[in-house]
Nucleic acid binder design. Structure first.
Lengths: 186, 186
DNA sequence: TCCTTATGTAAACACTCGTTTACTTACGTC
DNA sequence: GACGTAAGTAAACGAGTGTTTACATAAGGA
């Protein structure tokens, strides 16, 4: 048996939070298009219609979920001396699948969802990163960071090709560390 | 006025080819999920039902289109001394949007389409590349190539963030060239 | 305690999609 | 030149989607 936390049977805030939490997981796992409103609400244990009532529709829910993920993941809070090592730890070791970057792929198929993801990633990841890098080629550095990061997640999550799919092969990890570190050092 | 080529009004091979050609463009432009059978057949000027008749369904058509794209794009036909420069030319300058790698993203949303893309990219891109690189870390090199390539296309096509979106900024291009060259040199 | 209101549900709606079916028509053959 | 077959079309089908509507009910103040 499990200790059932006696939640209030009716609590709008809690229900809203439950939907948002489920949305983050399901969107990250199945992508925007394949994640159905019924999937999400079933996981949250509520009625599908509440997505429209509390968030104004699936797209707005996606935006809220992506926004929430972005609030819990800052890239610019790492020491520049160990940026490479620590960003790879964050990407590879922590369960970072409910993270802004993988979620971006989740939106790749839908035009509107892609626009939402683009705007959020630009304002909440790319720009802060650019300011944090500083210097005259800050935009190029930020672009390099996005390319390597997106490449990593695309390779790991979207098309696991090699034998070492899933875990990160040691030599690949070493390369990634150097790659990320080079961005801040250049 | 345009010189209208008087095509035979009924020609199965030509119709089949027209559907395949349209499919490559529409899949690459809108992605697997958003590209409707009606979109594709409208562009080819034929009836939607012919997709099922000639290809056995949308998924099979996608596979055929991706396969055709892979046949026209070999990565291993470049001189190793100038691999970096030439692969970037191919990616950035030639219109490479109807190319296997961007099409891979097109499949990201659909489970079955992703499986098809994975298999084809593994057998037709990753493995040949691995053999071409050779040596004991050929698999790591191939993985690095995939990561950088996917990162580039993801950044360029899926989320154009920076001011220089669209064209490739010179310093980014320089970095990409060094990056690709380093893979074969290492 | 009663009544109002917020919360949640069930069901249907409106729409899109890929696919199938029934039918028409042009082409090649005898 | 008639005929049979392959090529193509139009329309409907069935399943799936997000969303809306109508209704039930628990919560909280008068």
């Amino acid at each position: 048996m499990e200790t059932t936390i006696e939640a209030p049977t009716r609590d709008a805030d809690r229900t809203r939070a439950a939907i948002l939490h489920a949305a983050q997981q399901v969107f990250a796992a199945k992508g925007f298009a394949e994640a159905g409103v019924r999937d999400i609400t079933a996981r949250a244990g509520v009625n599908p219609s509440l997505v429209s009532r509390y968030f104004g529709g699936k797209l707005k829910l996606f935006e809220a979920a992506l926004d929430a993920a972005l609030n819990t993941r800052l890239m610019t809070d790492l020491p520049k001396e160990q940026f490479g090592k620590m960003i790879v730890v964050r990407f590879a070791d922590e369960d970072d699948r409910v993270s802004p970057l993988p979620m971006m792929f989740s939106a790749a198929s839908d035009r509107e969802a892609r626009a939402v993801a683009q705007r959020l990633l630009r304002d909440r990841v790319f720009q802060p990163l650019k300011n944090w890098f500083g210097g005259e080629s800050a935009d190029v550095k930020a672009a390099r960071f996005m390319m390597v990061s997106l490449g990593f997640f695309a390779y790991r999550d979207q098309l696991p090709l090699a034998e070492f799919a899933g875990r990160v092969e040691p030599r690949l990890r070493q390369w990634l560390e150097r790659e990320f570190q080079a961005i801040v050092d250049d």
